[in-house]
Design a protein around this nucleic acid. Structure first.
Length: 255
DNA sequence: ATGCCGTCCGAAGGACGA
């Protein structure tokens, strides 16, 4: 079973890119982030034609998450907080496992209310993970965490000092998730691989200079960590015309 | 470097991203 995560930075602007990547990668499940469209305006027909079932939790202009799957999807939840209008979470069951798709808040600037919002959002995610672990549910959490876990996960750590993606408070939330017993699928299989980035800014030739960061992740519950076969970052979509600033990460599980 | 680019909304240029 191949599960992919891709922050597409607008599903409408990225439709040809996403469809050609789907055709090449052939994932069984896909978690999309930053679809930037209301639920009712999602381009459903194009993904149905590619033989995917679909769950969409959208929002006008910003944020928004969606899930595609070859097998039927059953929605469990689309929020960590009923008072939060931002569409950043989608939890569903497919093929007997629980898949959580996240678009965690950016949190910049750190002096603004956006940073405590980010930390609070991550606390709610940690609470949800604790609950699922206690219930011994096989699950994974994938998506755009907006966290650079370690200095080796960015090209230029000095440049990220003080940024919400690299602040000690943000990295501590990541560590808490890992210390609950979740496995960073990529680092479990590639512990020392450098330049393993999933995002390159559009500005200042970041892609051409490989000035990237690793912020899109897959965390596995213990039951699924035992089934981990491979985890790869697919750099190819980032080099295409009209690319997203993120590129997909794919994990393969032997269920 | 409050810079660089891209997308959204809406019809110019500000908000937002990372």
């Amino acid at each position: 079973m191949k599960i992919a995560s891709f922050n597409v930075n607008s599903v409408r602007a990225r439709l040809p890119n996403v469809l050609s990547w789907l055709e090449a990668a052939q994932p069984d499940v896909v978690c999309l982030q930053e679809i930037k469209v209301e639920t009712d305006s999602f381009p459903r027909d194009e993904f149905s034609a590619a033989h995917y079932h679909l769950l969409v939790h959208g929002q006008k202009s910003y944020n928004g998450v969606a899930m595609l799957a070859r097998a039927p999807l059953t929605e469990i939840s689309h929020s960590l907080n009923p008072d939060d209008p931002q569409a950043r979470y989608l939890e569903a069951q497919v093929n007997g496992i629980t898949i959580i798709n996240i678009y965690a808040p950016n949190g910049n600037p750190v002096e603004s209310e956006k940073f405590p919002y980010k930390l609070d959002w991550l606390d709610r995610l940690i609470a949800r993970a604790r609950h699922l672990l206690a219930a011994e549910t096989p699950f994974l959490i994938t998506g755009d965490y907006n966290i650079i876990p370690q200095p080796q996960d960015c090209h230029d750590p000095k440049a990220w000092e003080g940024d919400a993606l690299f602040r000690p408070e943000s990295r501590a939330k990541w560590r808490t998730l890992c210390n609950l017993g979740l496995t960073d699928a990529f680092r479990a299989l590639h512990p020392t691989q450098a330049n393993a980035y999933t995002f390159w800014d559009y500005q200042a030739g970041a892609w051409q200079r490989d000035n990237g960061i690793r912020i899109d992740h897959v965390l596995l519950s213990p039951q699924l960590a035992d089934k981990l076969v491979s985890c790869q970052i697919d750099r190819n979509p980032r080099g295409q015309d009209k690319a997203s600033d993120h590129t997909p990460i794919l994990v393969e599980l032997k269920l």
